[in-house]
């Protein structure tokens, strides 16, 4: 690369008002189509040929970092209690190492903004930083001049967002963007991905047109999978079930006999009981968020929904993450 395009990201648990419907309340860590939204964001950055990716994670969120399925070169993970202070220090390190520019992205939205275009935009305007926005307003995606941004953010004793507006420019992103404020947004992102409105695609093989299945999927006799649908790694779809209308069953989940899943995301390691109807919802363990009613409920009856032996998957995730750190 002509310039060093380096990236730092931050993830703060308090930033995501998702309650307990997600694994730990962190939507970026939620898996869709077998890959976490965090990894989808990292892939966007890697595809823009950035040279270093620094993942800055709040200390409380660190244990919940999902497994990265793809091996990204030059990625490091750092924990911090004050993430913006860590961003400033990272920018300082970058500047000291001769890195001119960095992208900063918070994964509270999924965006396909053209990062190289954002960089060119900033350079042409000779600003300390430029922030991407779309028709709904600013996005948490910036490109910054490392040295100047570090000094400015330290002087402001705050985050990059506190840099004086005179030194910033707003860049309008024309590409696909989906803000991830609540689980309804997650459902919309899944639907958009099934409809090829964005670049996210289901992993695995198409076993029939519009039906993707990953390795280790078990489908019982009489089960009906209506496209578009996605079945994640190690899923078990029991006899006479129905999975239909833009549903995604994520890894190691279990849909028991006779149950119908419609327009629903079943997050990893979730058991859904016998002969149920689950529609327009996101289910994670024993928590169900009804998108239609905008209500989240926790169900204590394990015969309906429950967490499905999470330890095997979690342990594997931890070891991978530790080796990355």
């Amino acid at each position: 690369m002509e310039n060093n395009h380096d990236v730092s990201e931050d993830t703060r648990p308090s930033s995501f008002p998702l309650g307990s419907a997600t694994a730990g309340g962190l939507l970026p860590f939620v898996e869709i189509f077998g890959t976490s939204l965090l990894e989808h964001t990292i892939a966007q950055l890697a595809n823009a040929d950035v040279e270093i990716i620094t993942l800055l994670v709040h200390t409380d969120a660190f244990p919940q970092i999902p497994t990265l399925r793809t091996s990204f070169p030059n990625i490091s993970i750092q924990t911090a209690n004050e993430v913006w202070a860590a961003v400033a220090m990272t920018l300082k390190e970058y500047a000291e190492n001769g890195i001119q520019y960095a992208f900063i992205a918070r994964p509270n939205a999924y965006t396909e903004a053209d990062l190289m275009d954002l960089l060119d935009f900033n350079r042409q305007r000779h600003r300390v930083m430029s922030r991407a926005s779309d028709h709904e307003g600013p996005l948490d995606v910036w490109v910054v001049s490392c040295g100047a941004a570090w000094q400015a953010s330290v002087a402001a004793l705050g985050g990059v967002g506190d840099i004086a507006p005179a030194n910033t420019a707003e860049y309008f992103a024309k590409e696909y963007t989906r803000r991830l404020n609540h689980l309804g947004d997650l459902r919309q992102l899944v639907t958009d991905a099934f409809l090829a409105r964005c670049r996210i695609r289901p992993a695995g093989q198409q076993i029939r047109p519009g039906v993707w299945a990953e390795e280790g999927v078990g489908i019982g006799r009489g089960a009906r999978i209506v496209a578009p649908a996605y079945l994640g790694r190690g899923c078990e779809i029991r006899e006479n079930t129905l999975v239909t209308r833009f549903s995604n069953i994520e890894s190691f989940s279990y849909i028991d006999y006779g149950t119908a899943i419609e327009d629903t995301t079943i997050l990893p390691n979730t058991y859904v009981g016998i002969w149920l109807d689950v529609r327009h919802a996101v289910v994670n363990g024993n928590k169900l968020m009804s998108v239609k009613r905008n209500v989240m409920i926790e169900i204590s009856d394990p015969s309906l929904i429950r967490s499905n032996v999470p330890h095997r998957h979690d342990m594997r995730g931890r070891s991978s993450v530790m080796s990355l750190a």
């Binding site: 109807d277 919802a281 009804s290 009613r293 209500v295 169900i299």
Partner: peptide, 12 residues
Amino acid sequence: APASAIVLEMMR
């Protein structure tokens, strides 16, 4: 209430 309605729906 919505929470009860969801359980009723879920159990058909």
